[in-house]
Nucleic acid binder design. Structure first.
Lengths: 140, 140
DNA sequence: TTGACTTCATTGCAAATGCAATGAATATTT
DNA sequence: AAATATTCATTGCATTTGCAATGAAGTCAA
């Protein structure tokens, strides 16, 4: 049989690393806030730009539009964001953080930044090169 | 609002890279073989060691046991593997490739190796360092 | 302006997932 | 040996997902 080493197979290693890291983040910080990673992504984007449409988030946050839409619905149910039909183009739905949403993010962002810093520390001096490699994979 | 840059957040970047790479692999090669990534993982492990239990695969291939179990069921339905109760320990189920399973892998493995080589090429000389960083993330 | 296209967001549906619970088989303890 | 605990694979259930289909709103061209 032609040899094959799953352990050197990049798609596999990448998938395992990604899911472990995401899961750790989710369990450590998101779970107690009652948030999933999908919801976190939407919130994260909204904390940078306010009044964003589903479509825009879909592109910037790299999620299927239906995934964004449903995450937004759940976030609205939790009172963290608001969905309003855009009045200049009524196809669009403007999402924005509520007061409560801001408060939640005010707590979560420092945790996320710390979590990220921990990862950078684990990577050590290679951290920068690692990011550069991710860039190459993402832009190919 | 405390600043947060999703684009520098490693869990996010890793997740995006992993899902794009896996998806590309799945669509380019697995789809036409009628296989999902989960099923591929199981097959990949079976091509290295024959007669392996679900539990063993679960550990080596980093998948939930129910996921392994269901992937195995689907593979059996496709005639690619065999499930037999282990006679020395009847709790275990021994999975192994059928003749057809071997044939399929004989075709897929070269494709997978090529796909992997392409990725290494994209990464260029940093490729080795990238793998080393993945190791660090996985062993922390 | 009317009609054909395109762009948005949501939803229906089938499939996949994670987790807990089940039940069967083996190990361990008393 | 009997009772208890552990290990293993599967399954039930609720949830999430991806994709296609829908319908509403806007754009463009004749």
């Amino acid at each position: 049989m032609t040899p094959f080493a799953l352990n050197d197979f990049l798609p596999y290693r990448l998938a395992v690393a990604a899911s472990r890291v995401s899961r750790a983040f989710e369990r450590r910080y998101m779970a107690e806030a009652g948030l999933s990673v999908s919801e976190w992504r939407v919130l994260a984007h909204l904390s940078q730009e306010s009044e964003v449409s589903v479509r825009e988030i879909q592109a910037r946050v790299d999620m299927e539009k239906s995934k964004v839409s449903r995450a937004a619905t759940r976030l609205e149910e939790q009172g963290l964001i608001t969905k309003v039909v855009n009045q200049t183009d009524r196809r669009l739905v403007s999402l924005s953080l509520t007061q409560k949403g801001h408060e939640v993010m005010e707590k979560l962002i420092p945790l996320a930044n710390r979590f990220n810093a921990d990862l950078q520390r684990i990577l050590g001096p290679e951290s920068k090169a690692f990011h550069a490699s991710l860039d190459r994979l993402l832009n190919e």
